[in-house]
Computed example of a mutant assay.
Amino acid sequence: MSIKVGDKAPGFTLPKQDGTSVSLNDLLQKSAVVLYFYPKDDTPGCTQEACSFRDSYEAFKDAGAEVVGISSQSADSHKAFAAKHRLPFTLVSDEGGKVRKQYGVPSTLGLIPGRVTYVIDRGGTVRHVFNSQLNAARHVTEALGVIQKLRGASPS
C-alpha cells in the first residue's frame, strides 16, 4: 500500500549524515517537508537529483520547506555524498528500507529502489506525490511548485 495525497505521512526517526537522529515530527514543528526517496548515493541520476535540490534549496527554504533525502545507504555514505556535492540539506539513512516500505515506494524492475518525492505540510498531511525513476530533476520542480502554492495559500 503506497501513501497517497491526503494521507497522513508515516512518522520516522532515522540517523542523519552527521550521526545524530532526526524525526519527521521534529521537522514538521518548523516547516513543511519535501521528503525524497532515492536509490543510491553517488549514482548519476541520484547525483543529478541531489544537486538539483541543492541548487533550489534556498527557494525551498524561502517557501517554508525543509528538504530531506532518504535512501538505504549508511550515515557515513551519506556524509561523503553530501560533502562531495556540497548538499546543504539532510540525508537520512533507512538501512533495511523500513521507512521506504511504510511509504510504499515501489522498486523498478523489482530490483532498483524507487525514486519518489512527497510534499508533506506542517500538519503531517501528504500534499503531493511524484514518482519518476528517470526524470530526476523534475522531482525538484514538481515539489517546489507545490510548496510555493502551499505558502501562498497559508497566512504568513
Rank of each mutant, 00 (worst) to 15 (best):
A137G: 13
M1S: 10
S77D: 09
F60K: 08
V105S: 03
K30T: 08
P15N: 02
F53D: 06
S156M: 10
H85N: 13
I70L: 07
S23I: 05
C51A: 10
G69D: 01
P88L: 01
V105D: 02
I112P: 05
Y38T: 06
L150I: 13
V129G: 07
K84V: 11
I70V: 14
E142F: 04
E95F: 10
G6F: 00
D55L: 13
K61Q: 14
R115I: 11
P88G: 04
L134F: 11
L111E: 00
L35I: 02
Q73E: 15
L144A: 08
C51L: 09
R115C: 08
G45H: 06
V68N: 08
F53E: 07
I3A: 01
S71F: 03
V146G: 00
D76P: 06
I70Q: 03
T43K: 00
D26S: 13
S2G: 12
G45R: 09
R100P: 04
D26T: 07
K8Y: 04
Y118P: 10
A59D: 15
Q29E: 13
V140T: 12
K40M: 06
D41Y: 02
N135L: 09
K98R: 14
S21N: 14
A83M: 14
A143P: 01
A143K: 04
V129F: 01
C46E: 02
K61E: 09
E95W: 05
T13A: 07
T13P: 03
L144W: 02
P113F: 06
S77Y: 00
D94M: 03
V68I: 10
K149G: 06
G110L: 05
G123N: 13
Y103N: 03
V67M: 07
R138G: 04
D62I: 05
T13K: 14
A137R: 15
E49A: 08
R115K: 10
S52T: 11
L87N: 02
A32S: 13
I112T: 11
